[in-house]
Structures are given as structure tokens and as C-alpha cells.
């Protein structure tokens, strides 16, 4: 069945890592794929995609008008595609005022939802955005949080509703009612073979026993960091030194203060417990 398989996550949860794994898996080259040339996994909120498929400048439209177009754009992409599509997405699964899902249930084949311990997400988010950790914690608790707001200038991405970290997780896992495969960042780190094999199977990329370990090796943190050191990474924020920083789960133990940990648990305890983070 054609349709979009969303590579969905709250920001800073391992989405790029999964995309680079899938790139290496699909290419099956003898060398690691260039980190700056991932296989076709465009982000759903790219302004250029919406402008091209709609045939208008979204920069001349209101946010409400643009959001009305977005599900139609995904349906259009699916109608034109000869094979299933993979798209990265940070939007939460939300509904338009008329009840239509922003990301179109009709265009959706399923979603791999990458989840990462919010205790680690806040550290990575603070680094990426150039803020302190307390600001990142506040943002993770904000049900109104949005990416690429850009009211006074034009960002190259459309505004994306994130909700809070818990809201984001539950929107995809419980509310979307599309087939969702949950992929924990911690499992990608600690048991990559089983975690990535599960994701590849769900994506319908059921390759042989050798191809998956090779793709894991070619998208290992060491390899990604090596390439970033050598030639830079175009998705790095201008505010951070490196995009691929540590690639480890559990870094929060050495970074967060007790009161910060308590705040995050107070905000997200029930969802953290459900996914094994408490």
C-alpha cells in the first residue's frame, strides 16, 4: 500500500540518526553514506514542498490557510508517488478545526515514533537552541510550544505545533489511530541490532542479516561524528558546536540538578513511567 511512513519524534530524540540508518540501509554501499546527503526523507513542514505542491507562496498566506492545505499536500504527494514515502516530522499529531488530521490519516501508512527520555532531551534541546536547561524544561512542559514561529521574518519551515513533550508522545501513540511502531532512543543505543531491525521491518524494509548490521555500523555515532568533524553537518544549528555530540543515553545523570530532574518528573512522570523511564 502506498502512503507516507512518518519518521516522527519530538525534536532532539534521534530522528536524524534513524534517517541516516535508513539511508545506509537503502543505499547498501560499501562505504558510509554522506551525512549531508540523506536518502529522500524530507521534513513534512518544509515550506518549499507545500509551495510547490499547492502552487502558491505560503509566505502570502495565514497560518490557518496554510494548515488547511497541508493534509491536501500530503494526499497529493501520495497520489503522485510510485512507491511508499518516508517523511520526517516534528509536528504533534493534531486536528484542524474541522476535525481533519493535519497530517492526513488518508495519506498515512504508519509512523515510526522515536521516543527519548525527556531527562536527556532537555540537555540536547538546550544545546541545539542555545538556551539554558531550565528554559528547555519550561519549553518541554508547554502545551503551546511551536517550532519555526517566525512572525517577524520568514523561516524556511512552516510553524509546527509540538504540544508539550508528553502531549507530543500521546498525540502520536494514542490519538493518531494510525499504526505506530515505537522506537526508544535508549534501545537504538544499547541494543541497536534489535531496535533497528524492528524499525526496518515495520517500514517494510526487511533486508538480510548482513545489510542491517552494516547500516548500523555506517550510522554509528563514531562514524557520524567523524564525518561532522571532517566536513560539517548542514542540519547543525548555528548555535551549537557539533550536532552529533555524545550519542549516549543517560547523560542527564552527570548534568541535571536534583530540582531540574524533579521538575521534569512532575511534568511528565506518567508518560515517562509508561515508556520505562521511571
Amino acid at each position: 500500500m502506498n502512503g507516507i511512513l512518518w519518521l516522527a519524534s519530538y525534536p532532539k530524540s534521534g530522528n536524524t540518526w534513524l534517517r541516516l540508518f535508513l539511508t545506509n540501509l537503502l543505499r547498501n554501499d560499501d562505504e558510509p553514506a554522506d551525512i549531508n546527503e540523506p536518502e529522500a526523507t524530507p521534513i513534512a513542514s518544509a515550506r518549499g514542498i507545500i509551495d510547490d505542491e499547492a502552487g502558491i507562496e505560503t509566505s502570502d498566506m495565514t497560518m490557518a490557510e496554510i494548515e488547511q492545505l497541508r493534509p491536501l499536500v500530503y494526499e497529493q504527494l501520495v497520489a503522485q508517488a510510485e512507491e511508499p514515502l518516508l517523511m520526517k516530522v516534528h509536528d504533534a499529531w493534531t486536528l484542524l478545526p474541522d476535525g481533519t488530521p493535519l497530517l492526513s490519516a488518508q495519506a498515512t501508512r504508519g509512523a515510526i515514533y522515536i521516543i527519548r527520555n525527556p531527562l536527556d532531551v532537555v540537555i540536547s534541546a538546550a544545546n541545539f537552541n542555545g538556551t539554558d536547561i531550565d528554559t528547555a524544561i519550561t519549553c518541554l512542559a508547554d502545551m503551546e510550544a511551536k517550532l519555526a514561529r517566525g512572525k517577524k521574518k520568514l523561516p524556511d519551515q512552516l510553524q509546527q505545533r509540538l504540544l508539550s513533550w508528553s502531549g507530543h508522545v500521546l498525540s502520536w501513540v494514542d490519538s493518531s489511530q494510525v499504526p505506530v511502531h515505537i522506537l526508544r532512543y535508549e534501545d537504538m543505543s544499547q541494543d541497536p541490532l534489535s531496535a533497528f531491525t524492528g524499525a526496518a521491518r515495520f517500514a517494510g524494509l526487511d533486508f538480510d542479516q548482513e545489510r542491517i548490521p552494516k547500516a548500523i555500523r555506517f550510522s554509528s555515532f563514531e562514524e557520524l561524528h567523524r564525518q561532522e568533524l571532517a566536513k560539517g553537518f548542514k542540519e547543525k544549528s548555528a548555535k551549537q558546536e557539533f550536532f552529533f555530540r555524545k550519542g549516549k543515553a543517560g547523560g542527564w545523570r552527570n548534568v541535571l540538578r536534583r530540582d531540574q530532574i524533579d521538575r521534569i518528573i512532575a511534568d511528565h512522570g506518567s508518560v515517562m513511567e509508561r515508556f520505562g523511564y521511571l
Partner: peptide, 18 residues
């Protein structure tokens, strides 16, 4: 056709709701 347009040689329709 795109989401807001349809095209044929010599003819082009742009449809913007509201």
C-alpha cells in the same frame, strides 16, 4: 494538478478557498 491548481496546455486554473 496541484492542491490549488490545475493545468492543461493553454489553460490554467488557480483555486484559493475563501
Amino acid at each position: 494538478q496541484g492542491v490549488c491548481f490545475q493545468a492543461f496546455p493553454g489553460r490554467f486554473l488557480l483555486k484559493l478557498e475563501n
